[in-house]
Simulated scan of single mutants.
Amino acid sequence: MNNLDIIHYAARAANWESRRYHAVVHVRPRHDPSAQWSPFDPLRRDSDSAKLAAAARVNVTHHDGYVAASAGVGALLVFAHEDINVDRLPDLDCAERRRAQRRAIAECAALIGRDSGPLWWRKEPVLRRVP
């Protein structure tokens, strides 16, 4: 998947309506057709990533060297922080950790949006009886 596919499927997991333009995805809530379309890029903006995590119910955990995002059954993504040499490039604003977090949330939601569709948490699991 390319970045536009990731953003499109992530919006689908959050139950948002999306429109793809040349290099931008715009979204609006599906239940409010009078709402305005707004640009959406959870891979670059922390605010969009936080909204996506809340809407698609993605759980994020931070560890010493990586960020893990999980949602639903089987959607678990782990992104490692790049090795940063503090002497050469101080990461004072934790940019690398935030990048890993945004990537983990967006790709985890994209997997859910691609495989399960919108409102995946409301779907009943299929339980089969073994004879």
Rank of each mutant, 00 (worst) to 15 (best):
H8Y: 13
K123Y: 12
A75S: 10
N59D: 14
L127S: 08
S70F: 06
D32L: 13
W16Q: 01
H81K: 06
N15H: 14
W37A: 07
H62C: 04
D93Y: 14
D48V: 03
D87F: 09
R19V: 15
G117Y: 03
P90Y: 00
H26V: 10
I7S: 02
A95Y: 10
H63W: 07
S49P: 02
K123S: 08
V60A: 04
V27P: 02
K51S: 11
G65K: 12
M1F: 09
W121K: 05
A110Q: 00
A71D: 03
D93H: 11
L76V: 14
L127Q: 13
I105E: 03
V126T: 08
R98T: 11
R57P: 00
E82F: 04
V86F: 08
R12G: 03
P90R: 00
R114Y: 11
R114L: 11
A56Q: 03
T61L: 11
S47D: 15
A80Y: 13
G113L: 00
P39A: 10
Y66R: 08
R30P: 00
P131F: 04
R19S: 15
N3D: 15
E96C: 13
A14C: 11
A69Q: 05
D32V: 15
A69L: 09
R57W: 05
V24I: 15
A53P: 06
G113E: 04
A110K: 00
N15R: 14
T61Y: 11
Q36M: 08
M1D: 12
P33H: 04
E124I: 13
R97H: 08
H62M: 08
S116Q: 13
G74A: 04
I105P: 01
L111R: 09
Q101H: 13
H81C: 03
P131E: 08
F79S: 03
R99T: 08
V126K: 07
R57K: 13
L52D: 01
A109C: 04
A54C: 07
R97L: 05
H63V: 01
D87R: 10
T61Q: 14
N2K: 12
D5H: 06
S70D: 09
W120R: 02
A53Y: 05
P42D: 09
I7Y: 03
A11K: 04
D41T: 10
V25T: 09
A56H: 01
V86G: 03
P39S: 06
V60M: 06
S34F: 05
R98I: 12
L119A: 09
E82W: 06
S47H: 10
N85I: 07
L111G: 03
P125G: 04
H8F: 11
H81A: 06
L43I: 02
G65C: 07
R57Q: 11
E107Y: 14
